[in-house]
C-alpha cells in the first residue's frame, strides 16, 4: 500500500514537472536567444549559446532605451496606483457607510464602467485628452489608467467594506466618532490588506497596459516599458532576434521576480478580480 502510494506520488510529480517545463519552455528559449549571436540563432534555435554574452543584454538595455522607459513606467504606474487606491477607498466607504442619499445611482454609474470594455471609450477618450492637452503626456496616461481602473477598485473595496459588521461603525458613532474619524481610525486600519491587493493588481494593470500608451504616447522618449518593447519589434530591429529576445528578457524578468516575491498577493488579487 505504502509503496503504491509512493509510486503514485512520483508519477504525479513527474507529470507536473513535465507540464511546468513545457509552460516555461517558450520563455527559456527566448532567454537563451538573448545570449546568442544571430548566426547561432539561425543555425539552431534550440542549442545553448556559444558564450554567455551579457554585453548583448547591456546593449539592448541601452539601444532599446529601457532605462528611461522603466522610469516612464514607474512615473505612470505609481500615481495611477495612488489615485485608484485613494479614490476607490473613499468612494467605496462613502457608498457603504457614508449615508449618501441616492448612492445607488452612483453605484449604478460605476457598475456601468465595470461592464463596458476599454474599446468603447478609446476613440472619444483620445480626442478628449487632446482637447485637455493631455495627449503625449505621462500624466494624461496616468489619469486615463486610473479612471479606467477605478470601477473595479471601487467594487473591490466596496465588497470588502460590506463585510465589515455594521455594529462596529455604529459603536464608533456612539463613541463620538464622525465620518472622518470612523474612516481614519476604524475602517482604514482594517482595510490595509484589500488595499494592498488592489494596489498590486492596479500596478500590474498599469505596467502591462498597452492600448492606452499606444494611443496616448507618441513621443518615443515618453514610451513605457511595454510600449518600448512593442516598438522594438516594429522598428529597426525587425530581424534582429538577439535584440528582441534581450528586450523580452529585460522586461519579463523584473515582472517575474516581483511576481514570485508577491505570489500570494498576485494570485489572490487576480482571482479576486474574477470572482468579485
Amino acid at each position: 500500500m505504502r509503496r503504491r502510494k509512493t509510486r503514485h506520488t512520483l508519477i504525479l510529480h513527474g507529470v507536473l514537472i513535465a507540464s511546468a517545463l513545457l509552460t516555461v519552455f517558450p520563455l527559456g528559449l527566448i532567454a537563451l536567444m538573448a545570449f546568442k549571436t544571430n548566426p547561432e540563432i539561425f543555425a539552431n534555435p534550440l542549442a545553448l549559446p556559444g558564450a554567455w554574452r551579457w554585453q548583448q543584454i547591456g546593449k539592448a538595455w541601452t539601444d532599446g532605451h529601457f532605462g528611461p522607459y522603466y522610469l516612464n513606467s514607474l512615473q505612470v504606474a505609481v500615481p495611477t496606483v495612488l489615485m485608484v487606491v485613494i479614490a476607490s477607498t473613499l468612494a467605496a466607504y462613502g457608498l457603504v457607510f457614508g449615508r449618501l442619499p441616492g448612492a445607488r445611482y452612483a453605484l449604478a454609474a460605476i457598475l456601468l464602467g465595470l461592464i463596458v470594455p476599454l474599446q468603447a471609450i478609446i476613440v472619444s477618450l483620445f480626442h478628449d485628452l487632446g482637447d485637455m492637452g493631455l495627449l503625449n503626456s505621462l500624466w494624461g496616461l496616468s489619469l486615463a489608467q486610473a479612471a479606467v481602473g477605478l470601477p473595479f477598485g471601487i467594487f473591490m473595496m466596496r465588497s470588502f467594506f460590506l463585510g465589515i459588521p455594521k455594529d462596529l461603525i455604529e459603536a464608533a458613532r456612539l463613541d463620538g466618532a464622525g465620518d472622518v474619524t470612523v474612516l481614519r481610525r476604524v475602517v482604514l486600519p482594517l482595510a490595509t490588506a484589500p488595499a494592498l491587493t488592489l494596489a498590486t493588481l492596479q500596478f500590474m494593470y498599469s505596467w502591462n497596459d498597452f492600448l492606452l500608451p499606444l494611443i496616448i504616447l507618441h513621443d518615443p522618449s515618453l514610451r513605457t516599458v511595454t510600449l518600448g518593447l512593442f516598438y522594438l519589434q516594429g522598428g529597426t530591429y525587425t530581424l534582429n532576434y538577439t535584440m528582441i529576445s534581450a528586450g523580452v528578457l529585460i522586461t519579463a524578468v523584473p515582472i517575474m521576480v516581483v511576481f514570485f516575491l508577491l505570489q500570494r498577493q498576485f494570485i489572490a488579487g487576480v482571482t479576486a478580480g474574477a470572482v468579485k
Partner: peptide, 13 residues
C-alpha cells in the same frame, strides 16, 4: 448614551 452590542462590536485592530 453608551451601548453594548450583541456582537460586542469591539474594534479588532
Amino acid at each position: 448614551v453608551a451601548m453594548v452590542f450583541q456582537s460586542y462590536a469591539l474594534y479588532p485592530h
